[in-house]
Simulated assay, not measured.
Amino acid sequence: MIKRLVLITVLGTFLMGCKAKKQTTYSSRSNQETTATKEKTKGKYDSRGLYPLPEDTGKFHRFSIASVEEYIQTFSDIAQYEMRAYGIPASITLAQGLLESGLGKGELAVKTNNHFGIKCHTGWQGDYDFHDDDEKGECFRKYNHPMYSYRDHSEFLSSRARYSFLFDYGSTDYRRWAKGLREAGYATDKRYPQKLIYLIEEHRLHKFDSDVQQNSGIAIAEPKQYENKVHVVQRGDTLYSISRRYFISVDELKRMNNLNSNNLAIGQKIAVKSELTKK
């Protein structure tokens, strides 16, 4: 079982266009113990190449982050673990974490450990909380520990067809990843790519991508491959039934086909993507 991450409480400020501004301070342990915890957990992967998550005891862990440097120091290892397993650049993961969570100080991050602003979406069966975002009282995923948020971010991007093209860019092309996330609809902010790229280059987050590539002990995961398909609507079809068939959420189907409602007509052609299975 992995010990929970530990932090130092230090005064600091951070302002990078993040949505929530509420700040809360909690007690933390010494920097020496944080370093010791990282050393004990270093290199522990399971048979699938995934870093094991801390045991879910049902206890909600609260964190206090004082600076950009402290956030990076705390979560850079986790971002690299996820890069090895899923192929998402660690620099992108860290930059999104910084931006979406307001350095871990944003109201949503503080009360839910949600560092990536991932909403509940259809099919989410985990814990949740409500938070004002684009609309009032929207449903957001809630995690007992930030590491669950990092793992869910990896699975969120790698399991949805609309993000599949990002994995063709390679795991060190952070600029194209940043622009692609905006194109795929991860964020509505037109300057979202520029903000991610600024964070990556200002704090040299791309060095974590290079570190993973140079690590010969663990190979970076190959991206999933998808093929474009067209589904012709039959009698009895609904967006939900189609989403279940092709493992795509209803929201993704509507985005891919520019649909404003759930209404379908027999014979209507719906664009879908299906994961290719390796032979």
Rank of each mutant, 00 (worst) to 15 (best):
R175P: 01
S28M: 05
E33K: 09
L50F: 12
K59E: 15
T238W: 08
S67N: 09
A219D: 09
F14G: 05
R191F: 09
R182C: 00
F208P: 00
K207R: 15
F247S: 15
K44V: 13
K207H: 13
V110M: 11
K22N: 11
L11I: 07
L7T: 12
H203T: 02
Q23E: 14
G137E: 12
L259P: 04
D129S: 14
Y81N: 12
L103S: 00
Y86A: 00
P54Y: 09
L276H: 04
Y169C: 06
E202L: 05
K229P: 01
M147D: 09
F167R: 02
Y186L: 03
E155Q: 12
K224R: 14
S243H: 04
V250F: 00
Y128G: 04
K119R: 14
Y71R: 03
V233H: 01
L103P: 01
R84N: 10
Q73P: 02
K22L: 10
G106S: 07
Q214E: 14
S159F: 02
D127T: 09
S261P: 01
L259A: 07
V233C: 02
G87Y: 03
E227K: 15
K3M: 10
R151V: 07
F208R: 00
R255H: 11
L199C: 02
N114E: 08
L181T: 01
A161V: 06
G137N: 15
H231T: 06
N31L: 13
E138R: 15
A85P: 05
S243T: 06
S154L: 03
M1V: 15
D237A: 08
